[in-house]
Amino acid sequence: MLDLSHISKTFNPGTVNEKRAITDLSLHLAPGDFVTIIGSNGAGKSTLFNAVAGSFLTDSGSIQLDGQDVTFQPEFRRARHIGRLFQDPMRGSAPGMTIEENLALAAGSGGWLSHVSQQDKKRFRDRLALLDMGLEDRMKQPVGLLSGGQRQALTLLMATMVPPKLLLLDEHTAALDPGTAEKVLKITRDVVAEYKITTMMVTHNMHQALELGTRTLMMDSGNIVLDISGKERSGLTVNDLLQKFRAGAGKDLDNDRILLS
């Protein structure tokens, strides 16, 4: 589904601030893979997502999505096939527009001059009802009135309104309170399972990294130092994971926000 071959990205090359964020990274994802990603501070997790989503072009290497070479495709073209959620719940929806209008944008059905049909509205209602947050009765309200958790849930709904080929979740529950985070996570799991979306999720919760998904990657200094899946992964504890990280990276996992439980 996703093929990264030998991608590299250096920021501010040739200056004192030079930062090699990703170095010669290769990765292959099979359709339906749900990958959790953990790593130390500045390991290149977000850079990896930015490279895949097309926020910038990589310095070298190539990126293929579902057999299509997207290495030089601009972000908005890739976004037709890639859904993305950020840590900041305010980033994924337009606060001054209503819930219905936001969903209509995300649904993207029909031509440029098409209006929201009654059918669309019904579909939006049904999907919103799945969130179990009462948003289906607030479709005409501006999104700015929603709480962070509600907005993140809505963003998730928007990102999967047209099921993407690849879903990128960049610590999308980190800014939410534990209860809401749990809820958003559950919705994530349901949506991903329902449409069998290939998913990559950055998390700083070690427990979550092992419990969710089918495969876990650990990153350090711009590369993947650990890649476990299948049987090897199923019996793993957080402690095993930390040890494996030490073996792979040659140092302790250093992340000031990491949650071990």
Binding site: E75, A79, G92, A94, P95, G96, M97, A104
Partner: peptide, 23 residues
């Protein structure tokens, strides 16, 4: 209120969102 119009409004309302969307 068309899809194009909504996209224009979103561009002004949340450029961050639009930058990482298919608009």
């Amino acid at each position: 209120n068309t899809r194009l119009g909504l996209a224009i409004r979103a561009t002004g309302n949340n450029p961050d969102m639009v930058r990482s969307s298919s608009i």
